[in-house]
Design a protein around this nucleic acid. Structure first.
Length: 128
DNA sequence: CACGTGACAACTC
DNA sequence: AGAGTTGCCACGT
């Protein structure tokens, strides 16, 4: 089915698929997405999200940098919108405009889902 | 805490 | 068919 096509799909498409699996009220980092997709660097994730249309179904807003902060984006207004969207989902920002990845950090997609898309083996998401 | 480095893919002309 | 341009990082020292 289309799911398997994902394996042959361009990297960006795979990234979108993973980001789409992030549940509301949860945030993931570029590096995390990159690690799940595999063979992809964190920057590639940023590039992919930057190429997303304004009406995409991909929750790009839930993807933030490793610092737990929102990327500055070119204009800067987009960052504000992203923050509002996250707050609307229940994500809390601290005084430093940072999100506690330990609380809201996404633990990764379901193994069954990942396996279905050929995202296995998935690198250990910091079992901590 | 700040700076510099390392590193890729997709789109358009 | 090829080349150039554009684009929301992470890590170590």
């Amino acid at each position: 089915m289309d799911d398997e096509s994902l394996v042959n799909a361009p990297v960006q498409k795979r990234i979108y698929a993973v980001v789409r699996q992030i549940p509301p009220g949860r945030v993931a980092t570029y590096g995390q997405i990159a690690a799940i997709v595999g063979g992809c660097t964190a920057r590639m994730v940023g590039y992919a999200l930057a190429a997303l249309p304004p009406e995409t179904d991909v929750p790009w807003q839930r993807v933030i940098n490793r610092q737990g902060k929102i990327s500055p984006r070119g204009a800067g207004d987009g960052s504000l919108r992203q923050r509002l969207l996250l707050e609307a989902e229940g994500i809390a920002f601290d005084q430093a405009h940072r999100v506690d990845l330990g609380r809201f950090g996404w633990q990764g997609p379901d193994w069954a889902w990942a396996a279905r898309h050929g995202f296995v083996p998935v690198p250990a998401p910091d079992n901590r």
